[in-house]
Design a binder for these strands. Structure first.
Ligand SMILES: [Mn+2]
Ligand SMILES: [Mn+2]
Ligand SMILES: [Zn+2]
Ligand SMILES: [Zn+2]
Lengths: 167, 167
DNA sequence: CACAAGATGCAAATGATTTGCAATTAGCAT
DNA sequence: ATGCTAATTGCAAATCATTTGCATCTTGTG
């Protein structure tokens, strides 16, 4: 992010229908523990903590962000990196890149492919979750015009949020 | 890139209307030297070499890619990194990210904002230059719905090219 | 409770990119 | 052409995000 200013970025939500921060029970850690066991992956303390933190995010979070929210010394950075790879491979988290060199992740509910995009403020890094994709037609055109298959896309929007438009 | 296989990726072009590899004169280094001088930036040997290499690419190229094409010892990696920052800041090159951790660059002609996207094969990394953007409407909606200004977007497509669809 | 596969901590290794600094130049003014 | 200064460069060291090796723990099971 061009970022440094941290003001108003903390819990700022703009149009966040399916915000991940649910009550705490449903769609929570146990659901994911289940999924892990099903693939003979172990439900460890580290993973539960990570999933727990992920489940209360409303926007993609960085590895370091997860680490910072974990009780100090609760889990090593390397473990988080390894966990994210595992979870990503199992389709339990989705990776996003905002172009600032760090990967960000969002938890995926069962059956959700998590496909959506973001609008990021280049001034304060506030994130708006976008729910429409509207790229279906374009993507189909790619397939037809160039003979590619399994076509996907990465798309993120950037701009100045209302509060950062000082001039 | 998932990449390792280098076969057929070398000079493979698929639909490349405004391919950067022009005859050699027009839109070449001198045009850019001009732009550099105009902003009291010096036209050095390193920059000329870099611009020259950039001008003969048909797809975005990495820093290392540029370095490898430069006569050995002709220019330090750090210099290329610094040059790319300068050129990017002057609007003479555009940065792209294919999600493999390395930035890629394309030269921009005067007046061209270079806005376009790519279709990258996840199998062999072959790149197709896309000339339609078609995001104008979506972008405008972002602006209206969320009050952002100066909205831009980063968009790249990924998929399996015809030659990599073995199964 | 014993065991083996899987996980984790820690430190060292990678890889891309950045930076400090002293030595070199390009562009402009004698 | 010569001098001068700010811009530029090479080189090595520093950053940063991410990955890995390895010895040591744990989880899931029987
Ligand atoms: Mn999101
Ligand atoms: Mn291009
Ligand atoms: Zn989409
Ligand atoms: Zn576009």
């Amino acid at each position: 992010m061009s970022g440094d200013c941290d003001h108003h970025c903390g819990g700022h939500h703009e149009g966040l229908p399916s915000c991940g921060a649910q009550k705490g029970t449903r769609g929570g850690v146990p659901e994911f523990a289940e999924r892990l066991r099903k693939k003979s992956r172990r439900v460890t303390g580290a993973r539960k903590s990570i999933l727990d933190i992920l489940s209360r995010q409303s926007h993609p979070i960085t590895i370091r962000g997860i680490h910072d929210q974990l009780p100090k010394g609760d889990c090593d950075l390397a473990t988080i990196y390894r966990s994210m790879h595992l979870l990503e491979g199992m389709g339990m988290v989705k990776r996003y890149e905002f172009g600032d060199g760090q990967a960000r992740f969002e938890l995926l509910r069962e059956g959700d492919d998590g496909h959506h995009h973001h609008l990021v403020c280049t001034g304060c890094a506030v994130v708006v979750e976008l729910h429409e994709c509207g790229m279906g037609e374009l993507e189909a055109r790619m397939v037809l015009s160039h003979g590619f298959t399994r076509v996907t896309h990465k798309l993120e929007f950037f701009g100045l949020c209302p509060r950062c438009q000082g001039g």
